[in-house]
Design a protein around this nucleic acid. Sequence first.
RNA 1: GGCCCGUUCGUCUAUCGGUUAGGACGCUAGGUUUUCAACCUAGAAAGAGGGGUUCGACUCCCCUACGGGCUGCCA
Length: 468
Amino acid sequence: MNSPVVTRFAPSPTGFLHIGGARTALFNWLYARGRGGKFLLRIEDTDRARSTPEATAAILSGLTWLGLDWDGEAISQFERADRHAEVAHQMLAQGHAYKCFATQDEIEAFREAARAEGRSTLYQSPWRDADPATHPDAPYVVRVKAARDGETVIEDSVQGRVVFRNDQLDDMVCLRSDGTPTYMLAVVVDDHDMGVTHIIRGDDHLNNAARQAQVYQAMGWPVPQFAHIPLIHGEDGKKLSKRHGALGIEDYQRMGYPSAAIRNYLARLGWSHGDDEFFSDAQATEWFDLGGIGRAPARLDLKKLDHLTAQHFSVLDDAAVLQELRSYLTATDAAPLSETQEEALLRAMPQLKDKAKSFGQILERAHFVLTQRPIQPDEKAGKSLDPVSRSILNELTPHLRNASWERERLETIVGDLAAEHGLGLGKIAQPLRAALAGRTVSPSVFDMMVVLGREETLARLQDAATGG
RNA sequence: GGCCCGUUCGUCUAUCGGUUAGGACGCUAGGUUUUCAACCUAGAAAGAGGGGUUCGACUCCCCUACGGGCUGCCA
């Protein structure tokens, strides 16, 4: 019987949730959800100086917006410090760790000398095998007594079999001189205690995996399955960092992308299921597997995200779009919609959302239904409402008064009128558009008429014919 | 410096020794059209370089180049 899958996302709260972290979280989430497993969240806040509650809040809200729900409460690594220390002392008692009294200056001097001589700069503590009787009464750190012979092998689901010679491994510090645990110790203890079965994380941790394996070994704990995924690079191929184009996930929300599109795009970035490009969450969870993850770093391509966004908007149901539009407005500090506006928006939604590339664009398209009479045409629209056009619109009005209000019928009426004047449909459609929307860009004039209804349409035509 | 990982069209990728190296985004040309889009058709576009292994390498091995990561009492 297979043990149930448990994955986790373990960000350090030193800044916002960036796109790379979001993808790591997504992969863990997909893997767990696709297998009826658990997806846990742990905040790695053992670095007190750099951790902030604001960052934790930003990460949580970012995950929430992305729709990546985690099981149980988020765990604070810092709050588990006692347990980490307990494990360190256990290793100490069992001889798997030792007290190192070397000062920072001594270590620095060692490294400088090593560099100068071209040797490995991995610190080799003289206290590793020292007789406890010789221990001074001074501050010390606890170091893991790593194996020096043989090799450590990581069977990685993405990277394959990775072999490290043990003489390349250092005796990492697991308890600082103030008694607090380091990340290297804490991750192992927490992952074990939380029952994590699969560790999917950035490949910047690949080397660490070998070092952490020492702790698993010392404690006699089973080693989880590792999957080290490549980092995401910026559009110029350089590493993504906060000062180099890395944006928080909430920036993408503010750009107007729906979360479903982001999930699809991020999943496809570095992972593939044959030639499938556009898929739902259900398909993604069903298809996702570690073997489909690539080994090379990927770059962000917003154009492709735009394309996926258009497809997702087209299949999202109207209510869901409106729901997320509300949070988009909040995120962009825009005024919320009135109930009347929301109702109007919902009526027009099929036209508004179709192939839209952002919530911003949906709002643009929705302008005709969000504004009220009398409509102030913008400059370009004003130009198409010249006297000749206005008289044609005037002529159109009686035809509309008693027409059955269906798209096809309206199209015929306007088309016939254009033909009577020996004009192309465009010659009437443009002023009509200006009259109904006050702009030169809008949804189809016939769609607008249907959404607006007879009374409002006639009123706007009347305004345009008599105005200015 | 040492160790580890990577390298297929501009970008994301398929291929898991035998393909005219496929798809998607973007791009170019043409078409359609009531605006912006969208849509339709066509097209250009790739295995970093060099050695092996093999009847046969994008695929396996080695070297080089380039990129990235780690090398902290950061995570």
